[in-house]
Design a binder for these strands. Structure first.
Lengths: 225, 225
DNA sequence: AAAAACGCTTGATCCAGATCAATCGAAACT
DNA sequence: AGTTTCGATTGATCTGGATCAAGCGTTTTT
């Protein structure tokens, strides 16, 4: 990512590779002191914030290659929790050391700014989704997002495993579990995908993308044109 | 903010103070090349992103002291537009120069990380709001947020001018204009605030905060306990 | 192997807030 | 001063998705 090999080594030296973590393990909890950023190597992680009403808001699902904990830099304290969704390998990067390193390696500093900025863009994108999109646009956007992220990491973009529950998807998308379940059924009936428990096959990615873009739905059961 | 006076001077040297801008002026538009961050000195600015369906999503309202444009660092391109809401003074900070300066001033680098991190936290907070809160909780949260930000800058926390339209508030909060209008009327009827056109007086900030926290509403017209 | 627990699906009903429609009022323009 | 324009309010109606309520598989526990 634009670093000299020597610099990559230095970065490599401060990264701590942990043994695999298991479903339900915490990377950190809301209120913990901020020490490290976390990078998912394999598996998946969810982050969620407590709500005033006692519930939780899922903030994101993190796949291999993705960074967790950037929101804790300012206050040096985590205001969300991070839990492992399936057996995962997650690296730790002590932030103080990363910061020191970035003062001596301008391209690392630049990369850090970019990473933080990207996180902001992603959140803003999510705001647009929650602000105006309807239920099927949200689920389609979610599936396309997963698909693209898997693809970028060399996994199949059309055939994957959902490591999170329907409940967690619903929470993330601001929808009820029942709505998620009904939408999966409907998408399957319309031939957009095939779903069996947590195994998803996207059959018509193009049409899913069209749905995300708010395209007028052409219901497949329409019989009288 | 933790910088040496000499460093403040260096920072000061790269900040460009512009003449006042007027309502409707653009700081930048979606698609523009990213050159500068913007700091609101006086007045207010809104940022908004285009939606796939042709509409717009208001991403934020920016008051004096607040920074605009952090989401553009990654791609070196703005993916939202920023428009002046009322006659405002806005400074420009050329990002390349800021970045150079931050390689030589570690405390400035640290401050940059904090600013970016804070933006992420704020967006995550907004996700929680859009994910589960109902209409009155959203408007109450919006008003409390404005109140706190005005207070921090030395303005009245309970008596202020809304520089944005009801339509823009609704768009920002994921609600229809009519809902915003009805809520203002209701809040006023309940004695929480006084609203006249764009002039707001918060009469019972405590109760507004209680609403944000999802507290069970005690309707003022309840007559049979 | 039975039973408990949990996640998912499906159906029925309800409601918060959207949408539609009309009016009003302030500000900008002749 | 009158007219147009645009934002705000208010009322009536509609609806997408929440909520309530069963069942149904799977997995885990005993």
């Amino acid at each position: 990512m634009g670093l000299e090999p020597a610099d990559v080594d230095k970065l490599d030296d401060i990264v701590k590779r942990n043994r695999p973590s298991h479903r339900g393990d915490y990377l950190f909890r809301e209120g913990d002191k901020f020490q490290c950023l976390y990078i998912v190597k394999t598996g998946s992680v969810k982050t969620y914030a407590p709500r005033e009403d006692g519930g939780e808001q899922v903030l994101g699902f993190h796949l291999p290659g993705e960074l967790i904990g950037l929101d804790a830099i300012e206050k040096c304290r985590h205001h969300c929790s991070a839990r492992i969704l399936e057996t995962s390998a997650v690296c730790e990067v002590p932030f103080v050391q990363l910061e020191e390193l970035s003062t001596t390696i301008p391209s690392l500093q630049h990369q850090m700014y970019r990473l933080l900025s990207r996180e902001i863009s992603q959140d803003e994108n999510m705001l647009t989704l929650l602000g105006k999109k309807n239920a099927e646009e949200r689920l389609a956007a979610f599936l396309i997002s997963l698909s693209e992220r898997f693809k970028r990491r060399g996994f199949s973009p059309s055939d994957f495993h959902l490591s999170m529950s329907r409940h967690e998807i619903g929470n993330y998308l601001g929808l009820a579990v029942e709505t998620i379940s009904r939408l999966f059924t409907r998408f399957q009936d319309e031939g957009l995908l095939k779903v069996e428990r947590k195994h998803i096959q996207l059959l018509e990615i193009e049409r899913l993308i069209a749905i995300v873009q708010g395209e007028e739905r052409t219901s497949s059961q329409r019989t009288f044109p």
